Computed example of a mutant assay.
Amino acid sequence: MTTRWLTPEQERAWRSYIAASWLLEDTIDRQLQQEAGMPHLYYSVLAHLSDAPDRRMRMTDLAEATKITRSRLTYVVTRLEKDGTVRREGCPTDRRGSMAVLTDAGTALLERAAPGHVATVRAAVFDHLTPEQVSQLEAICDRITEALQASEEQSTCGGLPWRRRSSSA
């Protein structure tokens, strides 16, 4: 098989994306650690639960929403349970499944953390883009996500993170 090397334009775009994504994740993570005492992933879990009906989601659905393995989500939810911000309940429709539920303490933490998080995201990303660029960014990210999910659905190399048995699979 012949390697399809990136064109110079693609190489520049790729390196630009990598630099921006790593710096953005570091910026967001640092802000949340300093102001709310939690990493970005924990904030994302709380935010997804906050948006869910009755502030609860099946663990498998939450893993898919956050794009992480079920084992990693289990670890995160266990840590959040120790902090009293999330609790687990049995799933009413599947005895093998469980639900993650945002507690009142979790809601209060999210409400305290959200203004700083939003200000950081706005300052790091949206304050530098035109409305047209925001639309383009959304379209590009959606396209990449859809393509990756479609190709991983067909993959025999481990598949989508939330379908893996462990983070090392």
Rank of each mutant, 00 (worst) to 15 (best):
S155T: 11
V76L: 10
M38D: 06
S155I: 08
M57R: 13
A47P: 02
E64T: 08
H128K: 15
A19P: 03
R15F: 06
E35A: 09
A113I: 04
S44P: 01
M99W: 03
R163T: 14
I144Y: 14
S168L: 11
Q10I: 00
R122C: 00
P39Y: 05
A65P: 08
A20T: 08
L110Q: 05
L24V: 04
M99H: 00
A119N: 08
A19Q: 09
P8A: 04
S98R: 06
A169D: 15
A52E: 03
T145E: 14
E152P: 01
F126R: 05
R79H: 11
V125P: 03
R143I: 01
A65G: 09
A147H: 13
L6F: 03
R70P: 02
S135V: 08
V134R: 12
L41G: 04
D83N: 04
L41N: 08
V77K: 06
I140K: 09
R72V: 02
L109C: 02
R55T: 03
D94C: 06
E132L: 09
T27P: 03
L41F: 12
P115Q: 03
G106L: 02
S44C: 10
G97A: 13
L160H: 09
I144N: 08
D142N: 13
T66I: 13
I144T: 14
R112P: 01
T7K: 04
A123M: 04
I28T: 06
S151R: 15
H40V: 04
S166D: 14
M1A: 06
A123Q: 13
D127M: 02
M38Q: 13
R55V: 00
R122W: 09
I68Y: 02
A139H: 09
Q10P: 02
P131E: 11
G97L: 03
A100P: 04
Q133C: 04
R164C: 09
E111D: 14
D83C: 00
A114G: 00
A147K: 13
R70A: 12
R95S: 09
R122F: 11
S151P: 00
R30G: 01
L137F: 10
Q33D: 07
A139S: 15
R165Y: 07
W22S: 07
R12S: 04
A123F: 01
L148A: 12
E89F: 00
I68E: 05
D83Q: 14
R72C: 01
L80K: 06
